[in-house]
């Protein structure tokens, strides 16, 4: 009864909801990619269109990497998941910085278009996804697709 549980031994097994969420975000991002590139192209020209594509690719890579890291660490240990999430934040920020530094002087890149696309698509895709997630969490019986949004999974100690 008084068995002590170590936080290092706790793990969250089962389905990985963050992978589902990020896959959904990436799918929507790819759908709206041409529209975003056209809008950026109208505002900033051809360089803006290419920059918007690059910005969107960075945002989608960021979501995918975050989900992959969490879904890899959570079944091993919750403590590892916490560490991976925090250092993953630094890693992903570093990767985005590196990608932008590498292309900052390239002729086909417009930095204002790239920056604005990163912010707008990151927030826009999140709010788009939030509509479905919020509905499925608040009203599980009314969730849009029960298979697509698992609201619970078993946590277990290995």
């Amino acid at each position: 009864m008084n068995e002590k549980l170590s936080p290092l031994a706790l793990a969250s097994a089962g389905q990985a909801p963050e992978v589902t969420v990020s896959r959904d975000i990436i799918r929507r991002g790819l759908i709206i990619a041409p529209l975003i590139m056209v809008i950026a192209g109208v505002i900033w020209g051809l360089t803006g269109a290419w920059s918007a594509g690059l910005g969107l690719a960075l945002v989608l890579m960021n979501f995918g990497l975050a989900a992959a890291l969490i879904s890899w660490a959570a079944p091993i240990s919750l403590a590892l998941m916490m560490g991976v999430t925090l250092f993953g934040f630094l890693l992903r920020l570093g990767l985005i910085s590196l990608a932008v530094f590498l292309v900052r002087d390239v002729s086909w890149v417009s930095l204002p278009a790239l920056g604005i696309t990163i912010i707008v698509t990151h927030l826009g895709l999140l709010f788009w996804e939030m509509r479905f997630i919020a509905a499925s969490l608040a009203f599980p019986g009314l969730r849009p697709n029960a298979q697509e949004y698992p609201s619970s999974s078993a946590a277990e100690t290995p």
Binding site: S12, G14, A16, E18, V21, S22, H122, I133, A155
Partner: peptide
């Protein structure tokens, strides 16, 4: 745990913005 992880992932993404 599944619900918490979903909310956590979205929270991380919003904070990262």
């Amino acid at each position: 745990a599944g619900m918490v992880r979903t909310t956590m992932f979205l929270g991380i993404a919003f904070t990262e913005a």
